[in-house]
Design a protein around this nucleic acid. Structure first.
Length: 105
DNA sequence: GGCTTGACGGGTA
DNA sequence: TTACCCGCCAAGC
C-alpha cells in the first residue's frame, strides 16, 4: 500500500451496500491495527470533500458512535435503507452485517 | 517543531 | 453489563 490514508479510503469505498465495518477493522486492514483514530479523522475530512460511504463505518460495539444528531440520523437512515436493521437506538448486528474485507484476517 | 484533537479499541474495575 | 483509563497515530494549529 502507498499511504495509510488512501488505503483506508479504498477500503471504505469497497464496502458493499448492506454491510458495515468498524473503525478498528478498517485500520487493521489498512495496515495499522491501532489506527482507528486515523480512520475517524479521514472520515471527517473525506465526508466533507468527497462522496464516501462513511455511513457503513461504525464502532467495534456495533453502534453508531456519532454525537451529532443530524449525522447520526443520516447514517441510521442510510443503513436501514440498505437493509441493515438497527435495534433500539443504535444497535447493529455485527455478526450479520460485518463485512470481512480480504485484507482483514 | 511541539501540543492538541479525535465519529476508537481493548483491558480492568 | 456499564464506566473509566490508557494507548495509538495522523492531521491541524
Amino acid at each position: 500500500m502507498e499511504r495509510f490514508t488512501e488505503t483506508v479510503i479504498q477500503i471504505i469505498k469497497r464496502i458493499p451496500a448492506g454491510k458495515v465495518m468498524s473503525y478498528g477493522q478498517i485500520a487493521k486492514a489498512a495496515g495499522s491495527p491501532r489506527g482507528a483514530r486515523q480512520v475517524v479523522r479521514i472520515l471527517h475530512a473525506m465526508s466533507r470533500k468527497h462522496s464516501l460511504p462513511w455511513h457503513r463505518v461504525i464502532n467495534s460495539k456495533g453502534e453508531i458512535g456519532i454525537q451529532d444528531e443530524e449525522l447520526f440520523f443520516t447514517q441510521k437512515t442510510l443503513l436501514e435503507g440498505e437493509g441493515v436493521k438497527i435495534k433500539g437506538r443504535n444497535r447493529i448486528d455485527l455478526e450479520k452485517y460485518r463485512y470481512q474485507s480480504i485484507e482483514d484476517e
